[in-house]
């Protein structure tokens, strides 16, 4: 298969006949960080389908990819539309919108993110009968607050109870956010302890959290973790991009 060029991808996103072409186009635009002037308007257009009742499954898939792409393109035009999606009835839409707002560091989203987490582990973090998800996408919401990076007592008070959530990955998301906001070693210690968890899936998640925290003191823990090298490299990318520390690059070189 020939790789698509940008012009073709934009045309694929605009057309309405082939949902899989649109789905792939929305993903491609984010992955390639397309700077095409029509990219953001076309991505935003896909979101209106989320207001239909019922929502078309194909359109929903395209919109979810568009939300992720908007989080990669970091265009301010997406702030308001994404904040509106935090009020969606659709769990996955709230989850992806939170992630993208976190990536865009949208400060205006903080009150809504805190609102969704209100009530702590017993409410927002409650297990749902017959579903694998919690009431709210807590990991994405906590990570978003950490990424946006406004350290104030209200935000910290909302996040802290989740550091005792029964699910290890929710605990990790809370510790990561607190480490990003408060820059205190104790939260890194919590994460390094979670990195010893017997479940590989938990270790992988925690490793990425440590990388995203930008906490360079965690470098030896990341290097020694019992997780595959590919994932360590992803975690270290986060650390390197935030810290500008050559020591991180040296460790990455050893893991190639």
């Amino acid at each position: 298969m020939q790789p698509l060029n940008e012009q073709q991808v934009i045309a694929n996103l605009r057309q309405r006949d082939d949902a899989s072409d649109r789905y792939y186009a929305a993903w491609w635009i984010g992955k390639m960080r397309s700077q095409h002037p029509e990219a953001v308007p076309l991505l935003l257009d896909t979101l209106s389908a989320l207001n239909d009742d019922p929502v078309d499954e194909d359109d929903r898939g395209v919109a979810l990819n568009a939300i992720r792409a908007l989080g990669l393109l970091l265009n301010p035009a997406a702030h308001d539309p994404l904040m509106q999606l935090l009020g969606s009835k659709d769990y996955s839409v709230r989850e992806e919108a939170a992630r993208s707002l976190g990536a865009m560091k949208t400060k205006e989203a903080i009150p809504q993110l805190c609102q969704l987490l209100s009530g702590g582990p017993a409410a927002a973090g409650r297990e749902q009968v017959g579903a694998s998800t919690l009431k709210e996408p807590c990991e994405a919401l906590l990570e978003a607050l950490g990424n946006i990076g406004v350290n104030n007592p209200d935000v910290v008070a909302v996040i802290t109870p989740f550091s005792a959530h029964p699910r290890p990955l929710v605990r990790a998301a809370a510790c990561r956010a607190l480490l990003q906001l408060m820059k205190e070693q104790r939260w890194a210690n919590e994460l390094e302890q979670l990195l010893q968890h017997p479940e590989p899936l938990v270790r992988r998640g925690v490793l990425l959290d440590l990388g995203a925290s930008g906490w360079t003191a965690a470098l030896p823990a990341i290097e020694d973790a019992s997780v595959e090298a590919s994932l360590k490299l992803v975690a270290l990318r986060g650390l390197a991009e935030q810290s500008d520390d050559i020591k991180v690059l040296d460790v990455m070189d050893r893991l190639l």
Binding site: M32, R33, R237, A240, E241, D244, I246, L249, M252
Partner: peptide, 12 residues
């Protein structure tokens, strides 16, 4: 180059 860590490594 879209990825910052690649830029960082190439500069080094």
């Amino acid at each position: 180059e879209a990825v910052k860590v690649v830029q960082q490594r190439a500069k080094l």
